[in-house]
Simulated scan of single mutants.
Amino acid sequence: MSKAPTVYDVADRAAVSIATVSRVLRTPDAVRPETRDRVLHAVSELGYVPSGSARGLAERRTGVVGLYFPGFDAVDEIADLDVLAGDGRPDRPFTVVRGAGPREDGHASKLFQDEVLRGAELEAWRRGLVLMVGVGRGDPEASIVRDMAGRVDGLVVLASSIPDDALERLARRVPVVVLSGPRVGDRHDHVTVSNTEAMAELTRHVLAQTGGRAPTYLAGPEDSPDGGQRWQGFREAIAAAGLSVDDVQVLRGDHTRASGRRVGEGLVGRGLPPALMSSNDQMALGVLDAFRGAGVRVPHDVVVTGFDGIDAAALSSPPLTTVRQPMLELGRAAIQVLARRLTAPAAAPMSVSLPVEVLLRDSSDRGR
């Protein structure tokens, strides 16, 4: 096997310096066309492939950025899987199931993270970067994200996914962009959506449908990065309508459809509120499941709304009123902001807020 060509071989073949070869490969528009063409011809003839590791050492860059989430799946509920067992062929190639309900493996509740990841992947690819994804479920000490920090040029982390003190330590090693959640006395770059304003508008719509009677509010986990902003918008609209927030019934789920179903079943047993506003779509869909099974008519008996704008919300019965946040664009924006920070490390911290859409559908329209 012949020796792999080096940058020195390319420079000799093109009769230029190795610095010129480097400029052609990194910023071709900065080199005269005839010189650029000569270098690229030499690269093609020799089959030269730039060394990413060598370039990274020279530039102190890896070309890799990280995206850290607290977890994707309900890991504790996933059954064992061994595709190498036996001859690799299943005993039965398929199974027929009649009357199947929604999946309970936790996947559907993570569509937000799936879409953000897809957006981050697209933007990283567009910028010639490699995206490293870390999943920290069951990692309270954030050891996974610390390990990632030693392998990447910068990190995107979901707000509240790691402790604040750990985040500050990470930011001393690599640039950090915080995804979702407001800035709270820190100097990181932030990317979020207009949670407060959208939830306030949605609450005003619900109050108009209920004749001013206060809805029940279904909150998610207390550490939800967007939960505080959505609750703030709800409170502002309730107060502006002359109602007391103290009189609002607040229930709590874990952002899964199953938890929303349990809440809905409990409300059927205790008595229905005029409306139920959920802080995410999955819980609202679970509530609709429970109400439909109990013969509760939505929106005639009770108005139901969600937040996120996942595709399943448009396909529910009735279609779910919700707020569509730009999940894919969130991932793209986070990588854009991180790329800016890598080129301008001394720039002032940036806060980017993306617009959302309030989608009024049948689950809240009593005029139909």
Score class of each variant (00 low, 15 high):
19 A>D: 10
19 A>I: 08
20 T>Q: 05
20 T>P: 01
20 T>R: 06
20 T>V: 13
21 V>A: 04
21 V>W: 10
21 V>H: 08
21 V>E: 08
21 V>T: 11
22 S>E: 09
22 S>W: 09
22 S>V: 11
23 R>W: 07
24 V>R: 05
24 V>M: 07
24 V>A: 02
24 V>H: 06
25 L>F: 09
25 L>T: 09
25 L>H: 10
26 R>D: 13
26 R>C: 02
26 R>N: 14
27 T>W: 08
27 T>C: 01
28 P>M: 05
28 P>T: 10
29 D>A: 15
29 D>H: 12
29 D>N: 14
30 A>H: 11
30 A>W: 06
30 A>P: 00
31 V>D: 01
31 V>N: 00
32 R>L: 11
32 R>G: 06
32 R>F: 02
33 P>W: 08
33 P>S: 06
33 P>A: 13
34 E>H: 12
34 E>M: 04
34 E>P: 01
35 T>R: 07
35 T>P: 00
36 R>C: 02
36 R>N: 05
36 R>P: 01
36 R>V: 05
37 D>A: 14
37 D>I: 02
37 D>M: 06
37 D>Y: 03
37 D>P: 00
38 R>Y: 04
38 R>W: 07
38 R>S: 08
39 V>H: 08
39 V>C: 05
39 V>E: 07
39 V>K: 04
39 V>S: 01
39 V>Y: 11
39 V>N: 04
40 L>K: 08
40 L>T: 11
41 H>N: 13
41 H>E: 15
41 H>V: 03
42 A>W: 06
43 V>H: 05
43 V>Q: 02
43 V>F: 07
43 V>S: 01
44 S>N: 13
45 E>G: 00
45 E>I: 12
45 E>A: 12
46 L>I: 11
47 G>K: 09
47 G>M: 05
47 G>W: 10
48 Y>Q: 01
48 Y>F: 15
48 Y>R: 03
48 Y>D: 02
49 V>K: 12
49 V>Y: 03
49 V>L: 11
49 V>S: 07
49 V>T: 15
49 V>C: 01
49 V>F: 03
49 V>M: 10
50 P>R: 14
50 P>S: 11
50 P>I: 07
51 S>M: 04
52 G>Y: 07
52 G>F: 02
53 S>W: 03
53 S>C: 00
53 S>N: 12
53 S>I: 13
53 S>E: 14
53 S>Y: 08
54 A>F: 07
54 A>Q: 12
54 A>Y: 09
55 R>K: 09
55 R>W: 00
55 R>H: 05
55 R>L: 07
55 R>E: 09
55 R>C: 00
56 G>N: 13
56 G>W: 11
56 G>V: 09
57 L>Q: 07
57 L>I: 12
57 L>A: 02
57 L>R: 10
57 L>N: 04
57 L>H: 09
58 A>L: 13
58 A>S: 14
58 A>C: 06
58 A>G: 12
59 E>D: 13
59 E>L: 15
59 E>A: 15
60 R>G: 02
60 R>W: 10
60 R>N: 14
60 R>P: 00
61 R>E: 06
62 T>P: 01
